[in-house]
Amino acid sequence: MYKVFVNDAPLVLTNKLSETVNGEYFLLNESAINNAIDALAKKKLQAAYIYHPNHEEILKKFTKKIPLEVAAGGVVTNKQGKVLFIYRNDKWDLPKGRLDKGETLEECALREVEEETGVQGLKIENFLKTTYHVFKKGGTYKLKEVHWYAMQTSYKGKLVGQKSEKIEKVKWKGPHKIKKALENSYTNIRILFEGDKFH
Rank of each mutant, 00 (worst) to 15 (best):
I124T: 06
G174L: 00
K171F: 06
G138T: 11
V119L: 00
K129H: 08
H133K: 02
E114D: 03
N78E: 05
K197H: 09
A41L: 08
D38T: 14
L182N: 03
T140E: 11
P53R: 13
K42D: 15
P53A: 10
E165D: 05
W92T: 05
L192I: 04
C108N: 05
Y49V: 02
Q120C: 11
N89W: 04
G81N: 11
L94M: 04
I189N: 13
K16A: 05
G161Y: 00
K96N: 06
K163M: 08
K44I: 13
N126W: 09
V134N: 01
E116D: 10
K43Y: 15
L84D: 00
Q46R: 15
N15D: 14
T117Q: 00
S31T: 15
T63G: 12
I178Q: 08
F62L: 04
Y141S: 13
F193D: 04
G118R: 08
L68W: 08
Q162L: 15
K173V: 02
K16C: 10
I33W: 15
E30T: 15
P10R: 04
F198C: 00
S31H: 15
K163P: 09
K142H: 10
L84C: 00
D90M: 05
G121R: 05
Q46N: 15
K42H: 15
G138L: 06
E125L: 08
Y155I: 03
V170E: 05
E57S: 13
K169L: 03
M1V: 12
K173R: 07
E112W: 02
A72I: 07
N54Y: 13
G97H: 02
N184C: 02
N34T: 14
A181S: 07
K123H: 01
K44C: 08
N7I: 12
S18G: 00
F193L: 06
E19I: 11
Y2K: 09
T187Y: 06
R98H: 05
F62R: 02
K163N: 02
K136Q: 12
G161S: 04
N34H: 14
K142Y: 10
E56G: 12
A181I: 01
A71Y: 14
K142N: 14
D93P: 10
Y141F: 06
E168F: 06
P53K: 14
I86E: 04
V75C: 09
K163A: 08
N15Y: 10
T77Q: 13
I86G: 03
E168S: 13
K91I: 00
I167C: 04
E24C: 12
E57L: 11
R190S: 07
H176C: 07
E115K: 05
Y155R: 03
P67G: 01
N78L: 06
K91H: 10
I66S: 11
E194D: 06
